[in-house]
């Protein structure tokens, strides 16, 4: 393709091709501090393309393709090329990655132990992880957490954090503009701005961490903590995994072990500060 870039996030080496220079330049800015090995073959290919030649210039719209595709995915305007790239990368991991159990969850770590936050969009898992990552925790990822079936450890996938709507201002108040991408206003997912993880979080991205807490955050409502049983945690995490079924017994073994060895809680919180303090509170009580 005309423009391309190679990016390594956690264990996944991406190759991203684009019909336009813009998305590749924007990715280059976000991922400039990530380790780069130009000889390493790609695990996943993403393509950002115009489906008609003239659509590169005339009302340019970015189609998302790659090794795995969603047949009816709508294209995005070129101004949202970065979002298209992010969606393309997520898609390849969600549909193609088979080495680890893939949880749709954010994660942070401290003292070689991790807190895994699993929830649907709107649960605030991404914002909580981003803010914790600025408050003494190592950010492991805001979207995917990988569980190694052999060791039971959690592995990081620290892509640039996709901040949405209110979370943008919360994070802007804490980090300098050098760590933020351009504001993408009015996307199908609302306003989006990317946060570059701290350099130490990127440098530590290959270090496995023992899971210590499983949290299922729910944004909104009075602060609440509720312990949940192994069976319920198991069901919630199979629903939060895109490759549980494809992994067969390896996924079963990894997940039963995870829910047995890791205490699980739902937390409800009305604002980020409360959410963070609930995480700290549970962390202080977590067995070690």
């Amino acid at each position: 393709m005309r423009h391309s870039i190679r990016i390594a996030v956690g264990p996944v080496q991406f190759r991203i091709g684009s019909d336009w220079a813009g998305p590749v330049a924007a990715l280059g800015h976000l991922y400039a501090g990530y380790p780069q090995d130009d000889t390493r073959p790609a695990d996943a290919t993403v393509r950002l393309y115009a489906n008609r030649p003239w659509r590169r210039w005339l009302r340019p719209s970015v189609h998302i393709g790659g090794d795995y595709i969603v047949p009816d995915a709508l294209p995005l305007p070129l101004s949202m090329g970065l979002l298209a790239a992010e969606m393309g990368m997520n898609l390849q991991v969600a549909l193609g990655w088979r080495r680890h159990l893939l949880l749709h969850a954010s994660a942070v770590a401290r003292d070689d132990r991790s807190v895994i936050l699993s929830g649907a969009s709107g649960s605030g898992k991404s914002t909580l992880a981003a803010l914790l990552g600025e408050s003494g925790w190592r950010l492991m990822g805001d979207e995917f957490t990988l569980i190694d079936p052999a060791s039971g450890d959690a592995l990081a996938f620290p892509r640039a954090v996709s901040l949405k709507n209110e979370a943008i201002a919360e994070v802007e108040a804490r980090v300098g503009p050098a760590r933020l991408g351009p504001l993408l206003a009015g996307t199908p997912k609302g306003d989006i701005r990317h946060l570059i993880p701290r350099a130490d979080a990127v440098a530590a991205m290959h270090e496995p961490v023992r899971p210590a807490l499983l949290l299922f955050p729910q944004f909104g409502g009075a602060p609440a903590i509720e312990r949940i049983g192994q069976g319920e945690a198991f069901v919630r995490l199979t629903e939060a995994s895109t490759n549980y079924i494809a992994l067969g017994e390896a996924g079963f073994a990894a997940l039963t072990r995870l829910v047995r060895e890791t205490p699980a809680f739902t937390i409800a919180y009305p604002d980020s500060a409360t959410g963070m303090s609930l995480v700290e509170q549970l962390w202080a009580l977590a067995p070690r």
């Binding site: 190759r15 130009d38 000889t39 390493r40 073959p41 790609a42 695990d43 290919t45 090794d67």
Partner: peptide, 9 residues
């Protein structure tokens, strides 16, 4: 090594 990019895709 980089020939594998295309072969895998």
């Amino acid at each position: 090594p980089r020939e594998w990019d295309g072969v895998i895709a």
